[in-house]
Design a binder for these strands. Structure first.
Length: 484
DNA sequence: TTTTGAGTTGTTCGA
DNA sequence: GTCGAACAACTCAAA
């Protein structure tokens, strides 16, 4: 008689390293059937965006490759998840299904239903945590409510037991006697038909597993200077692991422990303070998941109800100019073009462009969230929602609305020589440092020498920041009056 | 229950 | 040039 198999349903845990669902399947002693199911419709309004799909394509390719290295392979299916799983269960005589949890509202609903259905059929179904250091329900205030302020959440996390040590990747997987049919990766059509994603392919090494060398390099070289360098878009001062964390190619526990070790090695490694600062950022990711889980409506609605009726503007042209990096503010345009080209934007610049959309243009933050969702290779519902609500001032522990980023000052402070602007806005590259963040103030002769014709070779400012700031504060004041 | 201290990332203004 | 205050109260979390 055919031996029943154990299905490992891969989702956002596209790795063999530190994968508890995979480990459980291996431990069962049964043949292991690794599966990925492409079913974007089941994720509601938040099926992966275009950049994420590109990333996913290569992540799946790498996963298949690493599975083949241990004597297995990745089975791909497309269609309604439950139907696909049921077919796979029949084809492989599987009696158990293992997966790692996700926390997006639509996905939780889908997965709960699947678990119920499969359990009803008598299967052993078990889910695990591979995505988070502290799952949302394990961190609670003294009165058992979810946290809404970061710092107490952070302290609560640190007082929790340390996240588990990562599990090693299995050396060998037991294959089923006969593999079930699999779709071809290309047939999932995750890559765009028009190749707008060449910039993404150039900016990232998509054909090789990069995640562990990224960690090593960052801990060895990047961590010590992280507190200062992390704010500088003109410097390679961040770990750049966000897309790997999102796809699950990188285990957060692996990352945590690699950096945590540095906090205990003051003599040889980077200063403990720098490592702590980085861990704090990882806890921000946990906080984002905490909020998404406990306040699922925040994906589209402000957490702070006082913002529900804020009179955002409608301005299709302004939105388009922002998306395309044609606002006339060099640091904003540099960021938006870096995003469009590489699928990634430096964190500091995300705040600047976010503030510009929401406060200078007074456009609704969900518009920004949607654009980021489609264009970021690290697009992550929890992080994206938190980030946009934070910058708009309507989220948990958010920047107050009156705290408005000045795109010129931010540029001068964090891109002092304008190198970041010059890289992404080449039409300004010949402009001297003094005017690189504010070309409209440059004398006509300087502009001419730099080959710039404002309004033709580079756009005029969409708005005057000082006026826009005053307008935003005024609108904020009004919305508070009408709210009462 | 009430009180109290505190809260990611800024900017501007006036002394 | 530097510094502190104002910007706006509000809500959270813990004592």
């Amino acid at each position: 008689m055919k031996q029943p198999a154990a299905i490992v349903w891969f989702r956002q845990d596209l790795r063999l390293d530190d994968n508890p669902a995979l480990e459980a399947a291996v431990k069962s002693g049964k043949p292991v059937v690794p599966v990925f199911i492409w079913d974007p419709d089941s994720e509601g309004d938040w099926s992966p965006g275009a950049a994420s799909r590109s990333w996913l394509h290569f992540a799946l390719k790498k996963l298949d490759k690493s599975l083949r290295a241990v004597g297995s392979r990745l089975v791909l299916h497309e269609g309604p998840t439950l139907e696909c799983l049921e077919k796979l269960i029949d084809d492989t005589s599987a009696d158990s299904v293992f997966w790692n949890r996700r926390y997006e509202p639509a996905v939780i609903a889908r997965d709960t239903k699947i678990k119920t259905e499969l359990s009803k059929r008598g299967l052993h179904v078990e889910s695990f945590n591979a995505m988070l250091l502290f799952e949302p329900w394990t961190v609670k205030t003294k009165t058992a409510t979810p946290y809404k302020v970061f710092t107490p959440f952070y302290r609560a996390c640190l007082s929790q037991p340390e996240p588990d040590d990562p599990i090693s990747a299995p050396q060998k997987l037991k294959s089923p006697g006969k593999w079930p049919t699999s779709a071809k990766l290309e047939s999932l059509k995750l890559l765009p038909r028009i190749h707008w994603d060449t910039g993404i392919r150039e900016a990232w090494r998509l054909d090789e597993p990069e995640e562990s060398s990224l960690i090593d390099r960052f801990v060895q070289q990047g961590l010590a200077g992280y507190p200062e360098a992390r704010d500088r878009p003109d410097v390679d001062g961040t770990s750049r692991v966000s897309p790997y964390l999102h796809s699950g190619e990188l285990s957060p526990r692996r990352l945590w422990h690699a950096v945590r070790a540095a906090t205990r090695r003051p003599k040889t490694g980077p200063p403990p303070k720098a490592a702590e600062g980085y861990l704090r950022e990882l806890i921000w990711r946990e906080f984002a998941y905490h909020l998404l889980f406990h306040f699922p409506k925040t994906v589209s609605e402000p957490l702070n109800a006082g913002f529900a009726k804020f009179a955002w503007r409608k301005d299709a042209g302004g939105l388009k100019a922002w998306q395309k990096g044609q606002t006339g503010y060099p640091i904003v345009d540099a960021g938006m073009r870096q995003l469009w080209t590489t699928g990634w934007m430096h964190n500091r610049v995300r705040m600047i462009v976010g503030s510009f959309l929401v406060k200078d243009l007074l456009l609704p933050w969900p518009e920004g969230a949607k654009w980021f969702w489609d264009t970021l290779v690290d697009a992550d519902l929890a992080n994206n929602t938190l980030g946009w609500q934070w910058v708009a001032g309507c989220g948990a522990d958010a920047a107050p609305f009156f705290r408005i980023f000045n795109p010129i000052r931010q540029g001068e402070k964090f891109d002092p020589e304008g190198n970041y602007v010059r890289e992404w806005v080449p039409e300004l590259s010949k402009l001297p440092d003094r005017w690189i963040q504010k070309p409209w103030e440059a004398p006509e002769s300087i502009l001419k020498d730099a080959g710039i014709d404002l309004g033709r070779t580079y756009p005029q400012r969409l708005v005057d920041h000082d006026e826009a700031r005053a307008r935003a504060l005024e609108e904020f004041k009004k919305s508070r009056e009408t709210a009462e």
